[in-house]
Design a protein around this nucleic acid. Structure first.
Lengths: 198, 198
DNA sequence: GTCTATATGCTGATAGAC
DNA sequence: GTCTATCAGCATATAGAC
């Protein structure tokens, strides 16, 4: 694979992400993507195998970025409450650095498919990564309660609430791109953890 | 319009809402809906004008429910912080009573269309209702800060965070339908407002 | 009010010329 | 690597028999 084709592929992925974000995977056609890239839809297939491959090439890498990030925090020796703060900071950074890919996370994963013939299990792999992330998040949250840094709240409600905000941050950030990241981190920390601290 | 046809229409709307929730508007076909209702797709058109009309018949009523609810709170004589608490309780009730319609609110409104020829402005009307809701929410939030019941936080971040959780509540609730509503209200109040109180 | 048949257009993807 | 031409299938919606 030449360097040039890799650049072209990255462009196709980036433009697809923007279109998927705007209209969703199902409502975005291969022709829409080709128009955006500036070629005919048939030419796209010199760079990609299928529309489904594009979605997988967007969702699986971003899911792995999330998991790598929380794995590293999990393995650190910080108190659990400090781990939670770091996880929130990491999610903000990931969102700011990959807003289009992140925008697909809440809802577009349902369009991932499994294809036995190609040994290609996009849906299963994605769900596994997401479950791994949520499992660690809840585990660390429980630890912070055990360590008396958080009140003994309803864990599932609290984790759902925090993650709902973080997963939607891309949409708020799109309208406020000039905000200082440190301010955003501080404010969100207060919003998400402030009411739960002992 | 006969009583029977109204019942049939309600069934079509309910089944459509469930399908739109699962796969999204664009990925749900008229045939999918007809299958679910138990008739051929052509027969559906004896009960509805178009697929687009179904989406509007789901989204606009639920948006009006939200607006009616916040309008009533806004006109009350409660302190702003009590208004916010009531708004959160109302959103929880609306979600529990209309989970499928509520599930369409975060993302499916982009598929609403305007049709000049039919004097039918679904998109514009929906966006207007949503903006009205958010304007009142922010106004009441600001008031609660002025009345010293909330810290002087970054208002837009705080409102975004609270609304993100409330708009996603349908998905958490789907997996925890047996929870007592009073408990849910109490926990969410702590999560959403706890960190912001003076 | 439901059906079969059909119109018209768009979908993802492929074949083959250049 | 891009193009034109094309395929088979599915989309929304309508016409008209029963």
């Amino acid at each position: 694979m030449t360097l040039k084709s890799k650049i072209r592929q990255k462009e196709i992925l980036a433009k697809s992400a923007r279109l998927f974000r705007k209209k969703g995977y199902a409502a975005t056609s291969i022709r829409d993507i080709a128009d955006e890239v500036g070629m005919k839809s048939a030419s796209l297939y010199n760079h990609i195998d299928s529309k489904q491959e594009i979605l997988q090439s967007l969702l699986l890498p971003i899911a792995k970025i999330y998991v790598t990030s929380i794995d590293r925090v999990h393995e650190s020796n910080l108190p659990a409450i400090k781990k939670l703060e770091q996880i929130i900071r990491d999610q903000i950074t990931i969102t700011i650095e990959n807003p289009d890919a992140v925008s697909l996370v809440p809802d577009q994963w349902v369009f991932l498919e499994n294809d036995d013939k190609k040994d290609n299990y996009g849906y299963d792999e994605y769900v596994h990564l997401r479950n791994h992330y949520e499992k660690l998040f809840i585990e660390i949250f429980q630890q912070a309660i055990d360590e008396k840094d958080l009140k003994p709240v309803h864990i599932e409600i609290a984790c759902f609430s925090i993650l709902s905000t973080l997963r939607r941050l891309y949409s708020w950030y799109a309208r406020h791109r000039t905000i200082d990241q440190a301010v955003l981190e501080q404010e969100l920390m207060m919003n998400l953890l402030g009411g739960l601290r002992t």
